[in-house]
Write a protein that binds this DNA or RNA. Structure first.
Length: 356
DNA sequence: CAAACGTGGAA
DNA sequence: TTTCCAAGTTT
């Protein structure tokens, strides 16, 4: 695995490559931590730019700890699982205030911190501190279940896979090994069509020997997602300020900037932020982890009205990029609708020829 | 411990 | 179009 990693390691902004690592270079624990939290349930391709932006805005854990909550949530917007961003800040503040800006160099110490669970603690311990801890993420579950031909379905198989993975973790270069086995899972031992022909583990893989590699790991089927509905209210006042609110800490899109909405359920009760002749401009479709959402977008001119919730934010201080993706979709629809209205106002009669 | 918690790309 | 799934953690 380590030989394979020496020649096939993927380059990433937060990673110290195998050559530099063997020359004695160590990654910055802050950068490793930030990348690992971002990578939770999130692809490398998506994380890259977010990681670079965060490092540019907040180069050290002390910088991040001193940041405004709203700025960090805005920078996280679009990455999803927003509890990660809230815990990221909590963790940075603990490390900065209580630990002199240094991450604990032990599994147990890391596990105490907000947002750091078994995987992230092992990743930090091994990658940043070169401790012989074992990472078990989705990649490792797949690689191990195939090498040992574990037929037990996940998540039941998790403890078994963890024990097997621990047996393979070497005392030498545990950090590079952790990254190697995850790279292998991401590039060779993939969920569909694994590239067994070029796999360094081919000779020792029980699933490959039996020809069942594509069927592993087995998983319990997922529940079908229900569809919920809701309403969202996109409005500006006479000054052109946008009515926005910060969603409650707990729950969906917690802590994020958003337009006011009704509840989201099978039969939502309308909840406009003020009485007006609300106009429905269409429906936004969005899928969350556990349900589909059909969100009907309403607009109205707020004029001089005093809403029951939310705050008017001047257009100059509002960036659509600070919104979570669902709200961004609602914003884009409202923009397109108002653009169309303006265009048709300027050119009221401009019939598009019918194309048969 | 099951359920909650986002999003985008690939098949 | 729909499902699957990606370097999981918290409650």
């Amino acid at each position: 695995m380590l030989d394979w990693y020496d020649t096939h390691a993927r380059a990433m902004p937060w990673r110290v490559g195998p050559a530099d690592r063997r020359a004695g270079q160590r990654p910055d624990p802050y950068a490793v931590w930030l990348s690992e939290v971002m990578l939770q349930q999130t692809t490398v391709a998506t994380v890259r730019d977010y990681f670079r932006r965060f490092i540019a805005l907040w180069p050290t854990v002390d910088d991040l700890a001193a940041a405004e909550d709203a700025d960090v949530m805005a920078a996280w917007a679009g990455l999803g699982y927003y509890a990660r961003a809230r815990n990221l800040l909590k963790c940075a503040r603990v490390v900065s205030r209580d630990l002199e800006g240094r991450f604990p160099a032990s599994l147990a110490g890391l596990l105490q911190l907000p947002g750091i669970g078994p995987y992230t603690a092992a990743a930090l311990a091994s990658i940043a501190f070169d401790l012989p801890e074992t990472v078990v993420d989705g990649n490792v579950e797949r690689v191990i279940s195939r090498i040992f031909r574990v037929e037990t379905p996940l998540p039941t198989a998790k403890p078994e896979l963890t024990a097997l993975a621990q047996r393979l973790t070497p005392a030498q270069r545990p950090g590079d090994y952790a990254q190697a086995i995850m790279d292998l899972g991401a590039t060779i031992c993939t969920p569909r069509n694994p590239a067994c022909g070029i796999c360094p583990w081919r000779a020792g893989c029980a699933a490959q020997a039996a020809g069942v590699q594509a069927d592993l790991p087995r998983k319990v089927p997922k529940a079908v997602k229900p569809t919920r509905r809701g309403e969202v209210y996109v409005t500006r006042n006479a000054s052109g300020d946008w009515l926005l609110e910060t969603r409650p800490e707990r729950g969906l899109l917690g802590g994020m900037l958003a337009f006011p909405t009704s509840d989201w359920s099978q039969d939502p009760a309308p909840a406009p932020p003020f009485e007006a002749d609300w106009c429905s401009i269409g429906t936004v479709k969005h899928t969350f982890t556990h349900f589909h959402l059909l969100l009907e977008v309403h607009t109205a001119d707020a004029g001089q009205k005093n809403p029951t919730r939310g705050t008017f934010i001047p257009d100059s201080r509002f960036r659509a990029a600070d919104l979570p993706t669902l709200m961004r979709k609602a914003f884009d629809l409202a923009q397109a609708t108002s653009d169309n209205a303006q265009a048709s106002h300027k050119r009221p009669v401009n019939p598009v020829p019918e194309v048969p």
